[in-house]
Nucleic acid binder design. Structure first.
Lengths: 123, 123
DNA sequence: ATAGTTGCAAAGCATTTGCAACAGA
DNA sequence: TCTGTTGCAAATGCTTTGCAACTAT
């Protein structure tokens, strides 16, 4: 994967926010630094970086995907009031996954969990 | 909510399959019984039934949403080989949710979990 | 030099919507 | 009757893609 200025800026902007932005949000941010950047470039690079395992894509049932600069597996919390998405500071429950595998008899290699409620700012 | 033939057939077809179909799949099925049914009607009814709590929508990161005629909260398993989605026969881990809430300090009211691996048919 | 990347615009797709005709209650 | 619903087609909105001009290596 060639190192381009656009790619570098996209990754920096994604890593520099906690907001789990959508591709469109990120496009706006990147455009402040590279006014001629295109949607295509943003989308292509997000997909590439995701496929490389450098970032992760969140599909939370909204319209559009959200993106997370932290590739380390972790859970998320979505505020049902403001829509904010927070990272949970805890390791994924590996033991629980194994228990579920045992109880269902399925060959489970990974899992995802999302939590919902009202965030501290909205309470 | 008025009871219409279209609505009834859509619900029956969804409840009559274990395949967690996409809206388009369901449209095809319904069309075999009501040849003049439209996409709009299928989409509108799926949304309505979901909002009423009669069915649930699954957003598993694919392109399109999948639909589940079983509104009772339950986990899902996605086969990474064939894409099949299976219902897990176990109650959601309420105790675990409470533990996560305690550990993160967040007001969590519900959670979702999805498991991934290779299904029995593909192994 | 040359294969990967960009910007642009057009295309793709799933989903939504405006509207007039229709049909449950 | 009268408001909710349908079929149709057009419109949305996010995401992808073809292509010629670049550019990192």
């Amino acid at each position: 994967m060639r190192q381009t200025f656009q790619r570098q800026v996209i990754l920096e902007e994604l890593r520099g926010t906690q907001n789990h932005p959508r591709a469109g949000d990120l496009y706006q941010r990147v455009r402040q630094r590279i006014p001629t950047v295109s949607f295509g470039t943003v989308y292509r690079n997000l997909r590439l970086l995701r496929d490389q395992g450098a970032i992760q894509e969140l599909t939370l049932g909204d319209d559009a995907s959200r993106w997370d600069g932290n590739a380390h597996p972790h859970y998320h919390f979505t505020c049902q009031r403001c829509g904010r998405v927070l990272d949970l500071e805890m390791e994924p429950a590996q033991a629980w996954q194994e228990e579920v595998a045992r109880r269902t008899g399925l060959a489970i290699t990974q899992h995802r969990a999302e939590f919902y409620g009202v965030c501290p700012q909205c309470r």
